[in-house]
Design a protein around this nucleic acid. Sequence first.
DNA 1: TTGAAAGCGCTAACAG
DNA 2: CTGTTAGCGCTTTCAA
Lengths: 337, 337
Amino acid sequence: MAGIKDVAQAAGVSVATVSRALSGRGSVSASAQEAVQHAAAELGYVVSSSASGLASGRTRNVGVLVPVINHWFYACVLEGISRRLMDEGYDTTLYQLTKDRGQREKVFSDFLLRQRVDAVIAVNVELNSEEVQALHALNKPLVGVGGPLPGVPTLHVDDEGISSLATKHLISLGHRRIGFIGGNEETDVDFRIPSHRRTGYEKALHDAGIEVDNKLCMGANFTMPQAYEVAKQLLGNPAGHPTALLAASDEMAIGAILAARDLGLIVPRDLSVVGVDNHDLSEMFGLTTIEQRPHEQGELAVAMLLRAIRGEEPAHAHKVDHRLLVRSSTSRPIDET
Amino acid sequence: MAGIKDVAQAAGVSVATVSRALSGRGSVSASAQEAVQHAAAELGYVVSSSASGLASGRTRNVGVLVPVINHWFYACVLEGISRRLMDEGYDTTLYQLTKDRGQREKVFSDFLLRQRVDAVIAVNVELNSEEVQALHALNKPLVGVGGPLPGVPTLHVDDEGISSLATKHLISLGHRRIGFIGGNEETDVDFRIPSHRRTGYEKALHDAGIEVDNKLCMGANFTMPQAYEVAKQLLGNPAGHPTALLAASDEMAIGAILAARDLGLIVPRDLSVVGVDNHDLSEMFGLTTIEQRPHEQGELAVAMLLRAIRGEEPAHAHKVDHRLLVRSSTSRPIDET
DNA sequence: TTGAAAGCGCTAACAG
DNA sequence: CTGTTAGCGCTTTCAA
């Protein structure tokens, strides 16, 4: 392993100049710059992150906190984050937080605080103020994705606006009996995303003078299989089923479509379905949905973080755009006159 | 930030003793051990990974190379890896390799070589011998998941055996015209997993004295939507369709089931379908499949790596078990006598 | 713009 | 079992 000294020697300059030339900090003459670059390439020299980190306090590494990886949203955000970070020459260190309190404390005390990272991105993990404080005290910038964190710049979609928009789409088509498949306690722990989505749904109904019917609202765990089960109950009700259904995620919406099919209902003739996400599978099912772009959210989070790391004006909480994508799973309800 | 000196002072011992007590290397009296532990907890002391890494050459960090994250298999493997690594006190640093050659070289020259990691796990990325050499030269243990790497301990399922088993299952039910949905050039780049799966399928047919019919073999990109399209072509053929279908992944198998349904075919009456994976969605579709457990593969890979890091006898290439899970998507073919 | 030199915080001989 | 001390390889004053 070539060290900085070897490069200095080969380039005929001091180690200080090599350091400056390679890091871009401090000024270096064009000739020295060139010589160093050349020598470094020749020797295959790469700075040691430990040594550089120890001396400078900067690690060029960002910690990313996620609750799960095997889930469309998180995987996409993660891809966006790691891609952008790599472009900027940063490493991505992954911390998967489980429900286990002990493990979570350990992540904070043993992992994050061991100074391996310059900054942290929390994806849908609700940090308590102590945790936020701890990072703050270490002067580690923190950006949140997916839910507002007190005093932390955060990136998130407008969950209420999303479900309100979806509901309005159905109402504007003429639907009055609109069902809702949201989250359950289990999925509502961190940011109450399901709750917010339900609120938007209810608001839109209210605004249209439609009463909320709790019997039309079901909870599931954001997976296709569970939404399938739940939708079957909703749609199989002999007292009559809703003419439209809003699901808090595309995967659940697809589960509902499959449930409808298995009951012999034609979508959208007998049932309109709207989801949220614009998941990779939604096009295949002709699913009308509200698009959110998790990759972009990840990339934006990195951009915000870099500003903070570089000490530029801190970006503030920030809503991510969403838009209605109308496909073939929604239409006017059957005229029952 | 409390440093090792503060702890030493508080515990009334030398920094060397603190280091020994906290790292478990070298012997420390019970009383000193206790005093150090106490002082460290009191002061909220955590070793600086940069300083420790610089002094010892060990970083307690493992680099993981993956081609994508947003895919069931990779996400599961990643979850398994990061969970086990965290249990062992290691961090997980993620490197997402794109097809871009330049970026890939950069990962090697700039990222891995900057000594941030103690070892590397490559998940379905085919490293060339130079890359393997580079890691070897740096004395960084390397473990592969998902494909044999020359001279590298690797964990992988027996792709040929898997598809052979699946095919035999169909043959034993009485099927003779068995279609196959495999990968395409795009998905075959790294380890030719699709090719191996096709080979197993063909072998099983041969063994049963059935000729391979290329018209029954289609390629797709391992996604549900594309498999849906491809299956439609296969099943819609007016000259007659196969009575059974083997897909190289569960997602593709589900795409085929949906295609069959949309053509009015009943699974398994008119068409038996087998997949590979035991994906989260497979149960919901009653899909008969060959199970592979990616979480376990990730965990096993970590175990192998830790042996190498600790200098124990190197684990060798290793096949992961698979098993046939019969559900309701396969049955005897209709008796057409 | 450059070089000399003092650390960064820890580990690992080494000596006791 | 414990303390002393010399680095680990770089960054960053400081002075030139």
